[in-house]
Amino acid sequence: MLILGIDTSCDDTAASVVEDGAKIISNIVSSQDEVHKKYGGIVPELASRRHIEMILPVVDEALKKAGITFKDISAISVCKGPGLIGSLLVGVCFAKSLSFVHNIPLVAVNHLEGHVFSSFLNGVNPEFPFLALIVSGGHTSLYRVDGFGAYKELGRTRDDAAGEAYDKVAKLLGLGYPGGPIIDHLAQEGTPDAIDFPRAYLPGTSDFSFSGLKTAVKIEVEKIGRLEAEKRLLTSQPLRFSTPAVLNDIAASFQSAVIDVLIGKTVAAAKEQRLNSIALSGGVSANKSLREKITEHAPKEGIKVFLPPLYLCTDNAAMIAAAGFYHFKTGQLADFTLNPEAYLHL
């Protein structure tokens, strides 16, 4: 059974054909990085305009790569949120039109549910129940997953998402955007315990907080005293450190603080919930050090780790098609009254 997935929740236009919720036949992602790079982030108005231009060619290519036509599709699965409302609208309107014109059933999928399902496209699936950590530029959340459609939020960030902390610290250090890969790269050359940045464990909850860490990096950078902080904040001029080693150490120490908290809280939640599998997803789950450390640490606690391949960590429509397959199989269809929602919990 073939499902066509469509995701336009943020800045990537994505379409994919997936067989039986598990096998990727085609997976097309058109990145808007070039459009937004000059702004150092995503501009909602520009993102939705770009989706309008790209949605048709991207869906066409997904079908062409799969070597199929609309006649072969059993259902269209579209992301209904959370995300940027103008971006979501493009995908939802397009999917509704396709469904109407070609008379194909429509299903609507929560973007976060899609991320959970990215673990089911890798050949080896986690067994229910398991713990899902979704960690990206927009989300940092923990869910208990008892089965398809059975999710319980255990915690989420109270301020910045982990990926956002990377972007902000990268900007503070005069590095580029997106900050994750750049900091991850520098960190490989630095000493993780050079600076003892705070780790917000928020005992008694499974919530996260990365805002204080960002503030601590800022204060530390000023303490190092290699620049005029005020001027930099006003002009966004890049920092000039006397040696690259200092920058590498800040990157490594910051990254180690983020990863310690992510792994510490995720493993603690798994133990508390008596879950012996953890599935990671979202853009930050592509982080090299996070992948290495959790793969090394969690098994010591008797917990198995499931990591999606890198191309399924970031936004994609294969995960929407995979989740949509289970909606379709259980008869959860959407109709033409479907509207996207910017804020949706799972």
């Binding site: 702004y39 982030g41 995300g83 530029g137 927009g138 989420r156 910045d160 902000k168």
Partner: peptide
């Protein structure tokens, strides 16, 4: 307050209610 998180990523966060509430964060805007 748990529903208010940083809006740097989306720039504009909209909360429906008797009075619509818009949390706008221009951190990344030139």
């Amino acid at each position: 307050e748990r529903d208010i998180t940083s809006a740097s990523f989306t720039i504009i966060a909209e909360y429906k209610g008797a009075t619509p509430f818009y949390h706008i964060d221009l951190y990344r805007v030139e």
